[in-house]
């Protein structure tokens, strides 16, 4: 039996006035995938994401969520079942942090003690001070507000989470923290996450499935390593490659895949088991050795093996 994709976008065209925001787009996202939609501004990535919770209605084609055509579902109920975090955060300025986080549970009719417990859990999950619950959003820093926005999206424990450039408006350090937080939450909860970003590095770092858009069409759709591989489409390689597509490609391949049966020389530097080929290359460059060992493995990782990734 083939697993049903949890999000299925089938031949969708979205027309705003006379321009097509999306043209005949088909995309399947499997349960538990972390899928990043990446592309230049105006490429249609936000529009594509908003099809999922029916903030955007297709002019042609069909959108199915958990196997159901979203056009047949009441929009508010559909949206309450899907988490949504956005770039401008969109916290309700007249409601406290706790009230903001508790919005969807309240709409779903949870009782007050259950909402309060859930808010407390989420403040802890997003590493926010529990005393912050009584504050109004204007008293928060940009990073805190983003965390609250993500907490609000997670409040009713939805199996699908939509994130529209959720790290867009914060400084680089906070951004890195929030990315790590998101990766951790994905690993811990196994939710299906759809992330819109214009930052290719972010897409490659976080996602297990990357979709590249240009002018309302999908240019590429696959695992991160496949999209920067030497045989990938030039536009995609250029967008995702960051000027050194070869190195970025190696950074997405596990060093374990290049293990050689020959043992590592005595005293050779050791790689961690989850190191990438780029990590191996970096250590080789520093050590000047020809081969490296790997923790818990008998064989070695050799320069010719790393550079032979293509073969």
């Amino acid at each position: 039996m083939i697993a049903q994709p949890v999000i299925a976008i089938e031949g969708v065209t979205v027309r705003f006035g006379t321009t097509d925001a999306l043209r005949d787009v088909t995309l399947h996202v499997k349960a538990g995938e972390f899928c990043a939609l990446v592309g230049p501004s105006g490429s249609g990535k936000s529009t594509l994401m908003r099809l999922v919770n029916r903030l955007v209605v297709p002019s042609a084609g069909q959108v199915r969520v958990r196997g159901q055509d979203v056009a047949t579902l009441p929009a508010p109920a559909l949206r309450r079942s899907i988490g949504y975090a956005m770039q401008s955060v969109g916290l309700f300025p007249h409601r406290t942090v706790a009230e903001n986080i508790g919005t969807v549970p309240r709409l779903l009719g949870w009782d007050a003690p259950r909402i309060a417990r859930r808010v407390e859990e989420l403040l802890a999950l997003l590493r926010l001070d529990p005393a912050m619950g009584v504050r109004l959003p204007r008293a928060l820093s940009g990073g805190q507000a983003q965390r609250v926005g993500i907490a609000r999206a997670l409040a009713a424990d939805p199996d699908i989470l939509l994130m529209d450039e959720p790290f867009g408006a914060v400084d680089p350090i906070t951004r890195r923290e929030l990315r790590a937080e998101t990766r951790r939450i994905h690993a811990e909860t196994g939710k299906t996450i759809l992330l819109v970003t214009h930052d290719p590095e972010e897409a490659l770092e976080l996602a297990s499935h990357v979709v590249v858009l240009r002018d309302g069409r999908i240019e590429a759709d696959g695992a991160p390593a496949d999209l920067v591989a030497p045989d990938a489409a030039p536009f995609v390689r250029e967008l995702l490659g960051g000027g050194q597509p070869g190195l970025r490609w190696l950074s997405l391949l596990p060093a374990r895949g290049a293990l050689d049966p020959r043992p590592a020389p005595v005293g050779a530097a050791m790689l961690a088991r989850n190191a990438s080929l780029a990590d191996a290359l970096s250590v080789l460059a520093e050590s000047g050795d020809e081969a490296l060992g790997m923790e818990g493995e008998k064989g070695s990782v050799r320069a010719e093996g790393i550079l032979g990734a293509r073969r």
């Binding site: 508010p76 949206r79 079942s81 916290l91 969807v104």
Partner: peptide, 25 residues
């Protein structure tokens, strides 16, 4: 507009958007 969009996106009905967000503000 982003407050209104957020209200819609988390699942408030049009009537709830009006009462709880727009008129409240």
């Amino acid at each position: 507009p982003e407050t209104r969009l957020a209200a819609e996106a988390v699942g408030l009905s049009p009537r709830q958007v009006l009462q709880e967000v727009e008129l409240a503000l």
